[in-house]
Design a protein around this nucleic acid. Structure first.
Length: 788
DNA sequence: ACTAGGCGGGG
DNA sequence: GTGTACGCCTAGT
């Protein structure tokens, strides 16, 4: 019989010597199913010395018996665009591939072993054109559910699943969870500290499981049972891969409980990209997607939920992490802790509604299962996208190789003309790097090495760096990027005919975003030494063409009589004269065959002498701040707030005197202890391990103090500290904010002189304000200000 | 007075 | 573990 299913997760096992791919999904009637495919066998490619294919094949066949090899054939493939003969070696068991790979690599006449590092179910999906988060139809036969898997039907595939598309996804059962742990010693430790609250939300319902005193066994058992009963398709948490799952697993183990929450029977297992795999379901850590919300500096759950409008911070219980145990020990405070946990799980559920539609499209496009695509880095996502493309083009997939880092030149940034400018248009190239890669056919497989003689008419030569690329045939990157941009264009056309409130529209919008994300990541990817399709010359040539493009654009703008104020990478800021700008846009289109458009118009824009730092007032009254302290995460909130207000007063009101008065008032408030201490916290990330630092910076010293007090501090973590009074280096005065005993310890003078004043002066100095004017007390009138 | 280390945000 | 360019702070000499 023919069945249609939507693919949620893939796994495999070897049953009686036969590999079995398991496709976990949902059928058209909403039943949860698994489709088993026993027809596929693993294989690798061997690239022999040229002309030695037959001999290599014989040698491989000779040792094949030991590895369960069932096929050795010579096939025609391409490797970096060049036709090659490769030996395809097929075997029975995916588990033997690593050994086979090693043995074959040692054989005489073998240049390279390829595609031996692709996980079996990924290999299957690529070869069969099967895509996660999409519908497939397949001829099946129902078989008994021998293993007691948590599905309605077990099917054995009788044909290759046919991919149908991503439209009309099924209603997914989503299960959000969050745990709170007892933490009297700072960071909770699973060997010692119990879980005190587990909150879950599924459908519209919230449930809370609590420990009995310090005994968390009943809560964990109840959680396991609840999860099994609800039988979710997607399990979401916030930082669950790095905290909740390992903690739960450890606690369950101590109690002799099995955290048996998968559909295939088994616990969550640590898997690729640092995620936990839960067979048959998608375990999605929403923190992975929150990381890409650049507007939020400190990515706590409450901050992200607040920013995205999921749950206002003001309308929820906020408890400082290190105080959680106090709320457990004090029975009168417990209800607050419960409420806090519920607010967290509701926020998590809300985030799932925001992020999952995008995650689903990204998974479908990139080809990584839903639970991996978020955890995978940008580079890995592009890698998998390209591996699918390579398969379609008959290209062999290059191995990952460790290479030394090779720096190369990047983009051009113009020196801005400082001060206030009125009516400034920002012209932006659309997808400049992908467009240039397409235009000049920049790709590892079109690259012509310096020693090769080729007629000039057949190549593009990159400016400055001189790298050469063949004009024809289209290279790997060109083909991939063209199809990405084309798919995106097609979707945007489709969207025009749809109601923006319809689910179809939302799906397409998320899909075009995902396509854009992959296309825009490809330049960075090609210059990443870890990329399978890495080629320094490709990245270097692309930026060189970028520099030429922007330089020519500026020259053209000036020739047309436009005043150029600033430019960076792929954007040019000009004093807005609509007719001239229109002429420029057309000329760029015709002469360079690239798209440039007016991205925004600033009524007023202010530049300091520094590059990459400015602020501007948009036509709709919004203020853009770029690069300045107000938008940086490593300044105290009070400094950012002051600068933001100063910018507003200057750009919107044009009132320098009021800006000065405002700063004075803040300084006075600060000195009188009227500024809440949260606004004095400075956040900085730990870029490396604590022992790797050459100099003792303030945040490093603060992190060491945290460790001494029993907190765990990891590489990449954010350290929040305040500066306290005392002598010596700043580092000697940096105290983690959670260890501050009293507000009276704070060095208010530091905040005045090193935070508020510099942030304000960054802007005000261009208006003739002197630092000591900010330090004077009392309010002044505008007249006083300009008079004295 | 100077350089180097470190970090963040942005095109 | 996608890229480079840039500014600015502080430590350290």
């Amino acid at each position: 019989m023919l069945r249609e299913f939507w693919l949620l997760d893939a796994s495999y096992d070897v049953m009686g010597g036969i590999p079995e791919v398991r496709l976990w999904g949902i059928d058209r009637s909403g039943e949860r199913v698994v489709v088993l495919d026993r027809s596929f066998r693993p294989y690798i490619y061997v690239l022999p010395d040229e002309g030695a294919e037959e001999r290599a094949a014989k040698r491989i066949a000779g040792i094949g018996g030991k590895f369960g090899v069932i096929g050795v054939e010579i096939v025609d493939k391409k490797y970096f665009g060049k036709p090659v003969k490769a030996v395809k070696v097929t075997l029975m068991s995916p588990r033997v591939v690593p050994q086979l790979r090693e043995a074959v690599a040692k054989l005489e006449g073998v240049r390279e072993v390829l595609e031996a590092d692709i996980r079996f179910y990924m290999r299957y999906m690529i070869d069969k054109g099967v895509r996660p988060c999409g519908w497939h139809s397949v001829e099946v036969e129902e078989v008994p559910n021998e293993h007691g898997w948590r599905v309605g039907k077990v099917y054995l595939a009788k044909s290759t699943p046919q991919y149908l598309g991503p439209e009309d996804p099924p209603d997914l059962r989503i299960y959000a969870f969050d745990i709170e742990c007892y933490n009297p010693f700072g960071e909770p430790n699973a060997d010692r500290d119990p879980i005190i609250v587990i909150s879950v939300k599924r459908g519209g319902e919230v449930k809370v499981f609590t420990a009995e005193g310090k005994d968390d066994k009943p809560a964990i058992a109840a959680f396991i049972e609840d999860l099994q009963t609800y039988d979710p398709d997607v399990i979401v948490g916030y930082n669950s891969n790095r905290f909740d799952w390992p903690y739960l697993l450890e606690r369950a183990k101590r109690h002799g409980l099995k955290l048996d929450v998968s559909r295939g029977g088994g616990e969550p297992t640590p898997s690729v990209y640092g995620h936990y795999s839960i067979v048959g379901r998608a375990n999605v850590d929403l923190y992975d997607f929150a990381e890409e919300v650049y507007e939020v500096k400190v990515k706590t759950l409450d901050n992200i939920a607040d920013y995205l409008g999921v749950k206002k911070r003001s309308e929820r219980v906020v408890i400082e992490g290190h105080r959680i145990h106090e709320y457990w020990d004090d029975p009168s405070k417990r209800p607050l802790l419960i409420r806090y946990s519920i607010d967290d799980v509701e926020s998590t559920y809300g985030l799932a509604e925001k992020f999952l539609p995008f995650a689903i499209q990204l998974s479908n496009i990139v080809g990584l299962p839903l639970d991996q695509v978020g955890a995978a880095s940008v580079g890995n996502r592009v890698d998998w996208y390209l591996m699918r493309a390579a398969f379609e083009y008959g290209e062999l997939i290059p191995n990952r190789v460790e290479r030394p880092y090779e720096p190369y030149r990047g983009a051009i940034v113009l020196k801005p003309s400082p001060g206030v400018h009125k009516n400034v248009a920002v012209l932006d190239f659309t997808s400049m790097y992908p467009s240039l890669m397409i235009k000049y056919n920049v790709s590892p497989d079109t690259y012509v090495p310096p020693d090769e003689v080729v007629d000039d008419s057949l190549i593009h030569v990159a400016p400055e760096v001189g790298h050469r690329f063949r004009r024809d045939p289209p290279g790997f990157y060109k083909k991939v990027l063209e199809s990405l941009l084309e798919a995106r264009r097609g979707i945007r056309v489709k969207m025009k005919g749809l109601n923006p409130d319809s689910p179809e529209y939302r799906l397409l919008d998320e899909r075009q975003r995902a396509l854009k994300v992959v296309a825009n990541a490809s330049y960075g990817y090609c210059g990443w030494v870890g990329a399978r399709w890495y080629k320094r010359e490709v990245a270097e040539a692309t930026t060189a063409w970028g520099r030429k493009t922007i330089t020519e654009t500026i020259a053209l703008a000036r020739k047309l009589g436009l005043r150029v104020i600033y430019g960076d990478t792929d954007s040019v800021f000009v004093v807005y004269e609509p007719e001239k700008v229109e002429t420029l846009v057309k000329a760029i289109n015709e002469q360079l065959n690239l798209d440039i458009k007016v991205d925004k118009v600033y009524v007023k824009i202010f530049f300091t002498e520094a590059k990459k730092r400015y602020c501007g007032l948009l036509e709709d009254g919004r203020v853009d701040v770029v690069g300045l302290e107000a938008v940086r995460g490593d300044w105290a909130e009070i400094a950012k707030e002051v600068q933001e207000r100063v910018i507003e007063l200057i750009l919107k009101e044009g009132d320098v005197g009021e800006a000065v008065n405002y700063v004075r008032r803040v300084i006075e408030d600060l000195r009188n202890g009227r500024i809440p201490f949260e606004k004095l916290i400075i956040w900085k990330s730990l870029g490396k391990g604590l022992d790797e630092y050459e100099v003792e910076a303030a945040h490093v010293a603060a992190a060491k103090r945290l460790i001494e007090s029993g907190y765990r501090v990891a590489k990449g973590g954010k350290i929040g500290f305040v500066i306290v009074s005392g002598s010596g280096r700043l580092a000697d005065k940096a105290v983690p904010y959670i260890m501050l005993k009293s507000m009276s310890e704070v060095d208010l003078d530091y905040y005045v002189r090193k935070q508020v004043i510099p942030a304000a002066m960054r802007v005000l100095e261009y208006f003739g304000v002197k630092e000591n004017q900010l330090l004077e007390t009392g309010q002044r009138t505008l007249l006083d200000f300009f008079g004295g």
